[in-house]
Computed example of a mutant assay.
Amino acid sequence: MRTRWPKNSNNLAVSRFGHLLNSRRVLLNHPELLDLFAATPQWFKSRSRLPARLRELVLLQIGCLTGSAYEFSHHIVIAAAHGVDGEDIRAVIAETEGNETDLSLVERASLSAARRLTTELDVEDVTWAQPKAISGDSN
């Protein structure tokens, strides 16, 4: 199925400084790559083994860490449908700032892995292993 950008898709390709983002330019000019790119969020929603609440906490963490107001506010609405409340959202912000929270051990470990992946573009094996070991997931 071919992904279709809205008619005003150029707005999606412009940075907050008014420049066309190279990554968006590539996507707009390569429909096959666009299909793969657009499929990624759908995979996380439908095929990921992460529980929905944990998935939304991780996405909130990434939105908070990157300063993406759209990503953060968009996922606040989605997260609420999966049991994430205001206290959880404040905890994500606190975790981003390096403060202690009452989130579960697996939630804190997952947020830590998300922060590492977002800032370093790499996650050490020990960082991946921590949430998996805590949750009992062997994959």
Rank of each mutant, 00 (worst) to 15 (best):
Q130S: 09
L12G: 00
A52T: 09
N139D: 13
L103Y: 02
D137G: 08
E56W: 08
D35C: 08
L65Y: 06
L28H: 10
N99C: 05
S68P: 08
Q42E: 15
K45F: 12
R24E: 10
I78H: 09
L59N: 04
L50E: 05
H82S: 07
L33N: 09
A38T: 13
R53V: 02
L65N: 09
D125T: 09
V106T: 05
E87A: 11
D137N: 15
R16S: 11
A80F: 02
W5D: 11
A133E: 12
L33H: 12
S46K: 11
R49F: 01
A81R: 14
R116I: 07
L27Q: 05
T3L: 04
T118L: 10
E95P: 00
E120Q: 13
H30A: 06
A91M: 00
P6N: 05
R55S: 09
H74C: 14
A38M: 14
E87Y: 01
T3N: 08
P131Q: 03
R2P: 13
L20M: 13
F37R: 05
A114S: 14
N8S: 15
D122N: 12
E124R: 14
I62T: 13
S135H: 01
V77K: 14
A91R: 02
A113Y: 01
L20F: 14
R16G: 09
R90I: 03
A69D: 15
L65K: 09
F72R: 07
V58W: 07
D102Q: 07
P6V: 05
N99H: 11
L65A: 12
S9W: 12
C64I: 03
E32D: 15
I78R: 10
P6E: 01
A38H: 11
A39T: 10
P31Y: 03
T119P: 00
A133W: 06
R116M: 14
N10K: 11
L27D: 11
H74N: 14
V58R: 06
I76G: 04
E95Y: 01
A39S: 15
P131H: 04
G98N: 06
R53D: 02
A38L: 08
L36F: 08
P131G: 04
A79M: 07
R55G: 03
L117K: 07
A94I: 00
N11K: 15
G136K: 05
M1I: 04
N139V: 13
S138F: 12
A80H: 06
L57E: 01
A79Y: 05
R49E: 06
C64Q: 13
L21H: 13
S9I: 03
A94P: 04
I89H: 01
R49M: 04
L117D: 07
Q42N: 14
I62C: 07
L111Q: 03
R2E: 09
L59R: 05
S48K: 03
